Structures are given as structure tokens and as C-alpha cells.
Amino acid sequence: MDSISPSQPLEQYSLQLGAEGCLVLPVALQKQLNLKEGDRFILIVEADKTLRLVSLHEQVQKLQGLFKDIAPDVSLADELIQERRQQARRESDL
């Protein structure tokens, strides 16, 4: 079976940059991914300048799984969430 490389997307959507830099995801995609108003995301700029949008919730869950054996008494997810909240506060103060 052929594996899918990152350069071969499963789906593509056309988005438009709106007022104040807002991007609106199509409703069908929001439903498919179970996204709700207020959900947080991480935007990753790849070396080739492509953008990757990752759900903060999903990223936290992945990190919890990766590091659960390394630091069993430390919640890296909580630390990440705290960092993101601090970053958001700094950005809103600008």
C-alpha cells in the first residue's frame, strides 16, 4: 500500500484572509473536525513557507503521550497551556 506524503493533501479548502487577519474555516470542515467557536490553534510555518494549522487540544494530547514516561509527575500539557495563555496575554497587551 502506498503511503501518503505530506505534499499530497487529503483535502483542500480555499480560505480568504478577512478583516484583522481572520480566517474562517468552512462549516463542513468545522463539523468534520468537531471544532467549536473559541477553539485554539497553533499555526506552524514550515521551512518551505507552507502553513500547518494544528488544534492546540490535539497537540497537547500528543505531547502528553510522548512525555508521559519521561516526567510522570509533571503535566507537560498544563505547562504548555500555561505558556500559551501567557503568550496570548502578552499579544493582547500589544
Rank of each mutant, 00 (worst) to 15 (best):
L63I: 05
R85N: 06
I81W: 03
L35A: 01
P6Y: 04
K49V: 05
K62L: 04
A19H: 14
I81K: 08
L23T: 00
I44Y: 13
L63S: 06
V24P: 01
Q64L: 06
A71K: 12
L10E: 10
L23P: 00
C22Y: 12
V45Y: 05
K36D: 10
S14W: 07
S7Q: 15
Q32V: 07
V27R: 14
Q32L: 13
L23F: 01
L51A: 00
A88P: 11
L66R: 00
E58C: 02
S55F: 04
Q59N: 14
V60G: 02
E20H: 11
S7L: 09
E11S: 13
S14N: 11
E79F: 03
Q64S: 07
L43R: 10
V24M: 04
S14H: 13
H57G: 15
K49Y: 08
E46M: 05
E79R: 08
K62Q: 06
L76D: 04
R89W: 11
V74A: 11
I44V: 12
G65F: 05
D39I: 04
R52P: 05
R89G: 15
E79N: 08
S7R: 10
D2T: 14
L25M: 01
Q32A: 12
S5L: 10
E91T: 06
R40E: 02
L15M: 03
I42Y: 09
N34H: 07
R84T: 01
S7D: 12
R52N: 11
S92A: 15
E37V: 08
R85Y: 01
T50Y: 02
S55V: 03
E91M: 14
L76C: 07
P72L: 00
Q8H: 12
L29C: 11
S92Y: 08
Q87C: 05
L35D: 01
P6D: 06
S92M: 08
E11H: 15
E20P: 04
D48C: 07
Q8A: 11
V24K: 06
L35H: 02
A19Q: 12
E20D: 06
L33Y: 03
E37P: 09
D73V: 07
L94Y: 10
A28C: 04
D73Q: 09
L63D: 05
V54C: 12
A71Y: 12
E58I: 01
Q82W: 06
R52V: 06
D2G: 14
Q61H: 14
L25N: 01
D93Q: 15
K31N: 13
D48E: 04
L56P: 05
G18D: 00
E20G: 08
N34G: 04
L94F: 11
K36W: 04
L53S: 02
S3R: 09
L94C: 10
K62N: 05
I4A: 14
L80H: 04
Q32F: 12
S3Y: 11
L51G: 00
L33T: 03
Q64I: 00
I4P: 02
V74Y: 14
D39M: 05
H57N: 15
G65Q: 09
D69N: 02
A88T: 10
A28D: 07
M1K: 09
Q30T: 04
Q87A: 11
S5P: 10
Q59D: 11
I70P: 01
M1F: 10
D73W: 05
L25H: 01
L23C: 02
D73G: 02
P6V: 00
R89C: 15
I4F: 12
